[in-house]
Structure formats: structure tokens, C-alpha cells
Design a protein around this nucleic acid. Structure first.
Ligand SMILES: [Zn+2]
Ligand SMILES: [Zn+2]
Ligand SMILES: [Zn+2]
Ligand SMILES: [Zn+2]
Lengths: 133, 133
DNA sequence: TCTAAACTCTATACTAACAACAGAGTCAAG
DNA sequence: CTTGACTCTGTTGTTAGTATAGAGTTTAGA
């Protein structure tokens, strides 16, 4: 299977597959005479796994770790569980930051109304609270 | 005032001031004989304005627009109000995305418990729902 | 006046995960 | 044997800086 068919089967772009290849998440089982990457069927699953991880915003580094960990099936899976835990914490931190941001922006927006001039704009005057721009 | 003092007064790094300079958000009123940037007091206010905008996660492009708009004090401020409105929508979209992400991650995490092996890991098996990695 | 420290300059590389090319080579069908 | 579809590597751009390198400038003390 060449890269284009792999892309079709997994609904990834050819570029991102090459990117994952370069990053070591997947690898071609061989190259054709003309140097085309050749993949076997198992790469479809591996790529779907990667896609699933990316949809959860796991970084390529984290995915690489997961793939490495899955190579030791008899080890404890603590590390995997801990990775997801800390990923959840990252996401929650981002949510908190954004919610506080949203609050500030809403209050900023409420400081202006329609039909004012730039000079009277409540938003601009709040943003430049001390001194003129 | 040289760049170092401006940095101290505004609590910005020298590098980011140079960056804003290059991006056209501020500009040195002159250069010294030895080619050092020289700023006047008004730049402190302008830089505080920029800092305030950045703390609200407004992009450099958006800040540039705001600064341009503030040069026409007698125009209507609709565009400013609209910019903040759409920025709020961006932020809300990001919050929604992250909350859905958080949900998925939590449920993924619940599919595994302590003291399992990698082979039994609920997280890994969910991530590779179809076929083995 | 000389020197050393502190400051500043430009230019480059790096961050994340790709996307979008350019320019060249490969392969399949007609 | 040519045309079009496909693929290759390598480079650049995205954001808002941070972190260097290597060179030049300024300032204070000896
Ligand atoms: Zn993470
Ligand atoms: Zn307004
Ligand atoms: Zn915005
Ligand atoms: Zn587990």
C-alpha cells in the first residue's frame, strides 16, 4: 500500500502521514524501487490509534510514549494512567484560564455600547487605563 | 530612554519589545549615534496598552488594528466592539472544545484502574478500539 | 585614559503539528 | 511514448515570543 491509499483509508492527509513517519510514530515496511513508501495493513490500525490520540490532543511525544509502552504488555500500566491524569490536569488548567479570560472580556465589552465614537469607546479607554496610547 | 529602561518600566522583556517594534506596534522616536533605539515617555503607555491587550489574548494583528482605529477618534467604534465580540466567541469556542475534550478524557481514564498490566490497560484498549496497534 | 562590565545591535534557531508549496522523479493507462 | 496522477525531499510559513551568537556601544571605576 502506498501513502495515498493509506491516507484514504485513515482519512489523514499525505503530509501528516509523512510527518508521523519522520517523527517515528509509524514506519514504512519497505520502499519501492522508485523510493515510494510501502505500508502494510497493520499501519492502518496504528494510524487510527494515532488519530484517536491526536483527537484527544495528546502530543506526538505522548503518543510516542504510549506506543513504546504498548511494546511491554506485561509491565504495569501505571505510567499510561498517570499520563492521562496529567493530561486531564493540563486541559482543566487551560479551561480555567480561558474562563477567567472570558469573564474579563465580557466585562470589557460591557463597558461600551453602540453608537459611540472611537474617542468615547469604553473598550479602548479601559485598555489604555493609564495615559493615552 | 533606551530599550532596557522601557523594559523595566513596563515589565516587558527587551526581546518582546524588539518584537513589537519589528511588528510595527511601537517605534523608536530616534536612534542614538551607536544605533540604540531611543523611546519617549509616551511609548510606556502604548506598551502598557499592548500588554493589557496581550493579557486578554488579543493577537498582534488585532492589537495593530486597535492602534490604527484609535488614530481616528471621531469614527464610530463599532469595529472595536465587533472585534471584542468575535474574540469572545473565539474564546467560548475554545472553552467548549476543551470541555468536550475533558469529558472524553475523563471517561477514557475511568476505563482503567490501578494494578493492571499494559496488556489489560483499559485506556490503551479504548485508544486502539479497532485492531491492534 | 584605559578597561571591564553592562548594555545593545542584528540575525538565526527553536517551540507544535502540521500545511503549502517547489522542483524533481515514478508509475499507469491510452 | 506521452500525459496525468502520484510520490519524493526539502523549504517555508504559521504564533508570540525565548534564547542564543557574535559584534558593537556605553558607562563607571581604577
Ligand atoms: Zn498532554
Ligand atoms: Zn466602543
Ligand atoms: Zn481574537
Ligand atoms: Zn491502564
Amino acid at each position: 500500500m502506498k501513502i495515498g491509499e493509506l491516507a484514504k483509508r485513515t482519512d489523514c492527509t499525505v503530509q501528516s502521514i509523512r510527518h508521523y513517519d519522520k517523527e517515528g510514530l509509524i514506519s514504512a515496511s519497505a520502499r519501492s524501487e522508485g523510493n515510494f513508501r510501502l505500508y502494510d495493513k497493520s499501519t492502518v490500525d496504528r494510524l487510527m490509534f494515532i488519530k484517536h490520540c491526536r483527537s484527544l490532543d495528546l502530543s506526538i511525544i505522548e503518543i510516542r510514549q504510549l506506543l513504546q509502552l504498548s511494546d511491554s504488555p506485561d509491565e504495569r500500566c501505571d505510567e499510561i494512567n498517570r499520563m492521562i491524569d496529567s493530561h486531564v490536569i493540563e486541559v482543566e488548567q487551560r479551561i480555567n484560564d480561558l474562563q477567567s479570560l472570558r469573564k474579563q472580556l465580557k466585562s470589557l465589552r460591557n463597558s461600551c455600547s453602540d453608537k459611540r465614537t472611537v474617542k468615547q469607546c469604553g473598550i479602548l479607554s479601559n485598555l489604555s487605563r493609564h495615559g493615552n496610547i
